[in-house]
Amino acid sequence: MSLEILTYSFMHRALISGIAIAILCSVVGLFLVLRRYSLFGDAIAHSSFGGIALGLLAGIYPLWTAYGVSIVSALIITRIKDKFNISGDASIAVLLSSGIAVGLVVIGFSGGFTIDIFSFLFGSILLVSVDDTVLILLLTGIILIVILLLYRQILYSTFNEEQAKVSGVPVEKINYLIVFMAGITVVTSIQLVGVLLISALFVIPNVTAIMYGKGFKQTAIISMSFSVFSVVVGILISYVFDITPAGTIVLLSIGLLAGTMGIKSAGLLSKN
């Protein structure tokens, strides 16, 4: 692999955005995985597909409409879940299919714009602009700061809602905040891996990290490291071999998961 590729400015943008998204997805994803909301990222991503189609149809920058639609549908689904006592997995299925349905109908009305849609479905990290990169860094920074400030409350309500309530944690508000941040995170990450593979970034590095059986902060750090490794190496490999970055990144993180499983079954991770 020639080092020349590291001198291209599009590659700088891709790597900087990719690292930011990797960190963001692994942190937000850790809370989702522990709340048994692993597929929530997927559901928001699918609903954002509807938002993207609406944006393309209306001639608005599709990611803006995607942000709007994703956040609104994430909050609505949380409300519906609480109010009508629908289980988490069923509400995710509803959200997931409604987003795609809206997208398909809108595409039908517009006579089809397949090329643009394709880049949203599978990501286009090598094409991110300077503006995109700045937005990605800004949103990542804001969300990470919010999580650091409310770390104890978010962790406690993830661990056990009832006990957190008794300790005076505003659990409902924290739940909405998590869902809101997940909505923003998903749409921000669409440029990296596309709508279809988002949940891989949320779930796989965290499932891998949890297997190491460490404390919360160490688990978060392991997950972030795996996530950043897969994204950086994935982007570079995919450029060199001219294959899709999204698929490469996800396969690399699956490789890390498989490796961890191997180490664990060989008994190398058991404590005691």
Partner: peptide, 17 residues
């Protein structure tokens, strides 16, 4: 009640309180 593999140490749990 908590997930069996919840990644938290004893001091993590006490710190939540």
């Amino acid at each position: 009640i908590f997930e069996k593999n919840f990644p938290a140490t004893v001091s993590d749990v006490v710190r939540m309180g």
